[in-house]
Design a protein around this nucleic acid. Structure first.
Lengths: 219, 219
DNA sequence: ACCTGAACACCGTTCAAGT
DNA sequence: ACCTGAACACCGTTCAAGT
């Protein structure tokens, strides 16, 4: 396995990640890639349609690692939903992306995808996948349907936001377990509704419906 | 005020926002700006050092509107801390940026700043300003120092994350008041500590320290 | 002081030709 | 099948010259 006769797509992707982590998204340039791999520009266009295609391949690679792997690693029957959430958050916060290590974080991917429709789509897919997973877990932790989805979204939004804020001058230590506990606690209104349902067998529901808080439609 | 003899920096900034909202960050180009304003490229470089300088001016403009204005609008003595948080979140979620209206959201700014050091700095300043403000309010709501800062960061991260997730296929309605209530409730450990402090006058503190949850250092 | 218009520089993309 | 190397295209930036 000394020298390769021919370049594979993976070689280009790996080189591109190297450039991204060492010099930022702007450094993903055809000439830099070629210098890194010891070929000339024409070679790149034999392997890829254009730079956008390479970027799409990079992000697809990220999606497999950063989403599916993390979720798979969590589907462990010994963990309680609470511990699973804590582990999920800590994993995502700490794992910048195992492959081609270095300071390449999800934030970079997210920002960097902003200008590219195709890449943006992949990021949305990852978000959808994660949200579905978290909602399932919330149901497993005993929350009702809509509340499970709302809380899952809030917990995931917190995660995404914390990644964004990494780099803030003085980001404090975060009490993640405490946060997870707060998110797993049903709201008073919801708890009262469940309580009322349980009592229904004894007496006809008489108590006034707990006033539901008005909800906010995002954007 | 029929026709202006001469272009002001504001004219360029306004035109650039128009391009950003209508066609995305990539559309902020010297030639497009010049066509919009009816001048030639050289004119642009008389007003600005380069495109990066124009971008910096745009983001500085955003910072004044999106941060200072929102905070100022909230410093209203009639609101409880709880209502203030709810209003803060709803404001930020719904106000894309009043000036030069349209779909220009904070997300665009944040993404778009990612590639530009100077712009990134301004975004961080805005984050710092908001975090300081929220931490203050958390203290006002009765949380202790470190917990106030941790909760403020969590609530702000949620906000930032929700903005990022806007555009998700099926983002659910969010129970913001319920979320704020959860964030304002002191953690059991913290509540116990406060309780213990209150009892101290009667008896020497005897109860074992409530085991503090291990905290996670972000990144 | 403010703008024109032509020139240059940089880098993504193409393509005919090589092995 | 994979790569070279030269050419082209696009757009940011410069600058001498105009008013």
């Amino acid at each position: 396995m000394a020298t390769k006769q021919t370049l594979t797509p993976e070689d280009w992707i790996k080189a591109a990640f190297k450039l991204l982590t060492s010099a930022g998204p702007k450094a993903i340039r055809v000439d830099y890639l070629c210098k890194e791999l010891g070929v000339t520009k024409g070679s790149f266009y034999w392997h890829f349609e254009d730079l956008a295609a390479l970027r799409a391949a990079m992000v697809e690679h990220w999606r497999r690692i950063a989403t599916s792997d993390v979720i798979a690693s969590m589907v462990s029957p010994e963990l309680s939903p609470r511990d699973l959430f804590i582990r999920f958050i800590e994993d995502i916060l700490q794992v910048p992306t195992r492959e081609y290590g270095g300071p390449m974080t999800e934030v970079a991917i997210r920002h960097w995808a902003a200008g590219d429709e195709a890449v943006q789509t992949v990021v949305r897919d990852a978000d959808t996948e994660r949200l579905a997973f978290l909602t399932l877990q919330m149901r497993g932790a005993g929350l009702t349907g809509p509340e499970a989805r709302s809380r899952a979204t809030l917990i995931y939004a917190t995660l995404v936001g914390l990644k964004q804020l990494t780099g803030e001058p003085a980001l404090p230590r975060m009490d993640i377990p405490g946060f997870v506990d707060a998110m797993l606690r049903p709201s008073p209104a919801s708890a009262a509704a469940i309580q009322a349902a349980l009592v229904t067998t004894a007496a006809t529901a008489r108590a006034p419906e707990p006033e539901p808080e008005p909800e906010l439609e995002v954007q």
